[in-house]
Nucleic acid binder design. Sequence first.
DNA 1: CTCTGATCATGT
DNA 2: ACATGATCAGAG
Length: 438
Amino acid sequence: MDFKTIDELLKYTENIKGKTFRELDKDNLLEKNKKDKGNFGKIIETGFYGYPNNNKAEADFNDLGVELKVSGYVKNKNGTISAKERLVLSKIDYNSIVNEEFNYSKLLFKNKKILIIWYEYDKEKDMSDFVITDYQLYDMSGDEIVIKNDFEIIKEKVLEGYAHLLSEGDTSYLGACTKGATSDDKTKQPFSNIPAKPRAFSLKNSYMTGILRSLDLTFTVDKLEYKTIDEYVYAQVKKFIGKTQIDIYFALSGIEYKNDIPKNLSKMISDKAIGKDKELPEKNDLFRKTNYIIKNLPVDNNDYPLERMSFRNLTLSDFKDEWEASWWKTYFEEVTIIVLCYEGSSKIKNGFRKLKDIKKITFNSDDIDVFGRTYNMVKQAIDNKDITKLPYPNSFSGQILEVAPKGIKGDDAYLNLFKKDTTKVCFMISKDFIFKKF
DNA sequence: CTCTGATCATGT
DNA sequence: ACATGATCAGAG
């Protein structure tokens, strides 16, 4: 089929809504090569748009400057929707990237517009019964400066001989995700002898979710004033550096705490100064398509943390998946933690600590592998209904991530672990590890 | 002291 | 009513 204009293409595409892959799969591709992850794309190209089933890399709408992508989403418990997976692009060649300028032709951005076909992923259903519910022409040019910056960050890391330390959290939209048959696959990098994991460019899960949600967002996108979240956050809190928590909160709210300092005073400050986690997407477009979180941490005068860092409550259902496919793995791979450090000590308690600086934490593949061990211990504990198998502190040497209780008075967090899906325990990362990351 | 299980104030 | 981010506080 040949489309003269984008309008024509979109008008035709309207008819795909409501179709299942079974209906479109005229050549029975789903049966023939079950393992081919590109199947959905091929089915739509041949079965819906009528392209011959050749092996040309992308039979897309080149003349129109549009590239076709098929992507799944899932419905969340709270009624929102999220992209199911990151969109993997071309493999990163460590040897050639160092000589490349940000080059549209090598990546998806050659065309800047992508036609995304969204289907609803439902693990209860057979793949061929997934329903295509939406499509969307997405113009990436608005994100170009962020993506270019991401590209440079990745290139820079390879130039420094740190390809083995790449993390998806390093960047905002364009990620360097791992790619390889097993997690032990390694490849060479040009400026170091240390083997690195093979990686590919990807549009991060959080970015795809942002695009997906823009389907029903009515408000217009802010102008991008900042290239990275760090810049943005720093701009918001710069003026408070050196001031105590009480003073900062007073400056922000007019409320002055004298005693009975709230435990979450630091969070109340970051909520007001930078934004509540839920509002962040409205504050700056970068937040809408990234997985950045703001955390607060007391440190001593050497920047050594006074506390561990906690994450959200674990749910039993988080651990149904194997580690490789788990929510937590994607989360740790993609997340970037912005840490507002407050200097304190055993004498200088909550409320009287002074904002010292802002640091950033991301996790590399070695970290992620160690997290996997912790994850599997939780999974074992749940699968066997045996709390002694949990990854308590110091469960194994080199442990970074541990479980800790997280309830209110009277909760026996560990003993009641199996009572409800949402448990009263959480993950925490160790102080030593945070310090090393700094 | 440090470690680790327990608890709190707030927001939704 | 309860999840969250964070700190507290007793044990060792």
